[in-house]
């Protein structure tokens, strides 16, 4: 069971991905038929070619299923294809999303300071001193950049 789970998540992620691409290309082909001639031809050609390639790729995957495809299914090394590694990836994506959320909610500079502090303290339990120093330093850097480059920050939604 566990082996199959790993396989589903890693080696065989390529199949669902190609299927998703295929679905997008079919949708694209469908939608583009409503365009005028000048806007339609290129997407039609691209989508058709893409569907052909996707089907070929799926066929190749079916035929070669089971065979060990050397460096073919992933750009990662062996140790990086465990479910734990995936879960950690998702966790860090969540951290990133939370920064983007904070960025809009409380403004860029407070979000940056809070995020760095939170990330280091909560995720890594880093000591207070380096965490605070990094956080303050980054906010100062961003503030300086904002002044020097006339950057424009989002209007915080909360205040």
């Amino acid at each position: 069971m566990k082996a199959r789970l790993i396989a589903a998540l890693t080696h065989h992620l390529q199949t669902p991905f190609v299927l998703a691409v295929l679905a997008c290309l079919v949708a694209m082909l469908w939608i583009s038929q409503g365009f005028s001639l000048g806007a339609r031809l290129f997407p039609t050609a691209v989508a058709s070619l893409g569907i052909l390639l996707a089907v070929l790729e799926l066929g190749r995957q079916v035929i070669r299923r089971g065979a060990k495809e050397e460096s073919d299914f992933s750009d990662l090394s062996e140790g990086e294809e465990t479910p734990a590694f995936y879960a950690r990836g998702l966790l860090f994506f969540a951290w990133m999303a939370s920064f983007i959320g904070l960025f809009f909610l409380i403004g860029a500079l407070p979000a940056a300071g809070l995020y760095v502090l939170g990330f280091l303290r909560l995720q890594y339990r880093s000591p207070w001193l380096p965490s605070l120093a990094l956080s303050v330093g980054l906010v100062a850097l961003l503030w300086g950049l904002g002044v020097a480059l006339q950057l424009r920050w989002p209007n915080p939604l909360l205040f």
Binding site: F92, W95, M96, F99, I100, F103, A108, A112, Y115, V116, F119, L120, Q123, Y124, S126, P130, L134, L138, L142, L145, L151
Partner: peptide, 13 residues
């Protein structure tokens, strides 16, 4: 872990 949050912030900005 000390580099990542800085890069994330700078890339987002």
């Amino acid at each position: 872990q000390y580099i990542a949050p800085v890069i994330i912030v700078i890339v987002v900005v």
